[in-house]
Amino acid sequence: MTVPMEPRDRLAFARALYDDVPLYDPKRSPVALDLTDNTNLWGMPPVAERTLRELPVARITRYPSLYAAELKEALAAFVGATPDRLVTGCGSDDILDSAMRAFGEPGSVVASSEPSFAMIPIFARMNGLQYVGITELPDHQPDIDALLATKPRILYLCSPNNPTGALLSRSAIERVVREAPGVVFLDEAYAEFAGVSAVDLAMQVDNLLVIRTMSKAFGLAGLRVGYAIGAPSLVRDVEKSRGPYKLNAMAEQVALAALRHDMAWVKAHVALAVTNRDRLAAALRDRGYAPLPSHANYLCVPLARAVEVGQALRAHGVAARPFPGLPHVGDALRISVGPWELLTQFLAAFDDATADVYGWAS
Rank of each mutant, 00 (worst) to 15 (best):
R8L: 14
D9R: 15
L11D: 13
A14L: 13
L23I: 05
T36P: 09
D37V: 02
T39Q: 11
L41Y: 00
G43S: 08
R50W: 07
P56T: 00
A58Y: 08
T61V: 15
Y67C: 06
G80K: 10
R85V: 05
G89K: 04
G89W: 01
A99S: 14
M100L: 14
R101Y: 11
A111N: 11
I120Y: 08
I122Q: 11
L147A: 08
L147W: 03
S159H: 06
N162C: 11
S169W: 03
A172N: 14
G182K: 07
F193M: 07
L201R: 03
L201T: 03
A202F: 09
I211A: 06
L220R: 02
R224K: 14
V225C: 10
I229Q: 06
V235C: 12
P244H: 04
L247F: 05
Q253V: 09
A255N: 04
L259C: 06
L259E: 01
H261E: 14
V270K: 05
V274M: 03
R277S: 08
D278E: 15
A281T: 04
A282H: 06
Y289T: 01
P291V: 04
P293A: 11
N297K: 11
G310T: 00
L313E: 10
V318R: 06
V318D: 02
R321D: 08
L326H: 03
P327E: 03
H328W: 13
D331W: 05
S336F: 02
V337I: 15
G338Y: 00
F346M: 01
F350V: 00
D351P: 08
A355F: 07
A355V: 04
A355R: 10
